[in-house]
């Protein structure tokens, strides 16, 4: 059996484990969603709280409740939000585009900027401006996303809604760390590729430096960058909570933030499942590429 197939077969148990853990954690966490929903309203009675529990199957024993959830989510029905009674699927579907476009835009920005930047830094290694740029990147990497977002707002960046402007501003903040990280990888990978024997051979055979850089070394150095994509996407997805909060974008992050405060179990479970699927896909891609790159791992499957 190929390692990739094996991994694919192991996906369902992992996913199951994640949902089970979330489910248990949610019920360990203090605070009763029915009570939160009732709030401090004057009309709140034990009957109204009990009726709410019954309406949303919150009064079932844990095991039954989890099995019910599993059975329903297998049909892609994640129940209804405790907050507003909307189907969770609709809520997630409404919030997903904003977050996904945010993450994809951030990835695109990161690669579009980091690859040329990394190349430029590698090509002119040792020059003064390279050193300065590297130091500047180093400092950028240390900035908290929230502060960058607030500074952008201060400078007049747009807020709220789903306009191109606000998405771009938010994605720029989100991609900052990834840009620095990727350009450093790119530079390092390119430098080591340039030192490789076969590049030296190409150079000795009279290829121009630019040709050596772009035809030979870059191709090889780009491979690990592709691997990084798998690892970077989930990080961007989870990092979007902050930028969504700062820029008021109605995406998955803000949805989850509100759901945590309201103990909106169905939405949280749906979010975790969705997040897990996205992340697992990322890990899968990264692992597959990793296995391909290091032949010593090929024989041993996980």
């Amino acid at each position: 059996m190929s390692p990739l197939l094996r991994r694919l077969l192991l996906l369902p148990p992992t996913l199951l484990g994640i949902t089970l853990c979330t489910f248990l954690l949610l019920h360990v966490a203090p605070g009763d969603p029915a009570e939160v929903r009732a709030g401090m309203g004057r009309g709140v009675t034990p009957e109204s709280i009990a009726a709410f529990r019954a309406e949303y199957h919150l009064d079932e024993p844990l095991a039954t409740s989890y099995l019910h959830w599993l059975a329903r989510s297998a049909r892609l029905d994640f129940g209804r939000s405790l907050l507003d009674g909307q189907p969770v699927r609709d809520k997630l579907a409404a919030a997903l585009p904003a977050t996904l476009s945010l993450a994809l835009l951030a990835v695109a920005l990161a690669y579009l900027l980091a690859v040329p930047l990394g190349c430029a830094l590698a090509a002119s290694d040792g020059k003064r401006w390279t050193r300065l740029t590297t130091s500047a990147l180093y400092c950028l990497y240390a900035l908290p996303t929230a502060a960058v977002g607030l500074a952008a707002l201060f400078a007049g960046a747009p807020y709220g809604g789903r306009g191109a402007g606000v998405l771009f501003a938010a994605a720029s903040c989100l991609s900052l760390a990834a840009i620095v990280k990727l350009s450093r990888y790119q530079r390092g990978a390119l430098l080591s590729a340039l030192r490789a024997d076969w590049v030296r051979t190409a150079r000795a055979k009279g290829a121009s430096p630019a040709r050596v850089l772009y035809r030979h070394a870059l191709r090889n150095a780009l491979l690990p960058m592709v691997t990084l994509l798998g690892a970077e996407l989930p990080a961007l997805l989870s990092g979007s909570v902050i930028v969504e909060e700062v820029f008021g974008i109605h995406g998955l992050g803000l949805c989850g933030f509100d759901a945590v405060l309201a103990r909106d179990y169905p939405v949280l479970l749906g979010l975790t499942t969705l997040g897990a699927v996205l992340t697992l896909a990322g890990v899968l891609v990264a692992d597959a590429a990793y296995g391909l790159l290091d032949p010593r791992l090929r024989g041993r499957s996980t």
Binding site: T14, P234, A276, L280
Partner: peptide, 10 residues
């Protein structure tokens, strides 16, 4: 893997 995908807030 479960740990990797777990949402921090919860």
């Amino acid at each position: 893997e479960i740990g990797l995908t777990f949402p921090t807030l919860f």
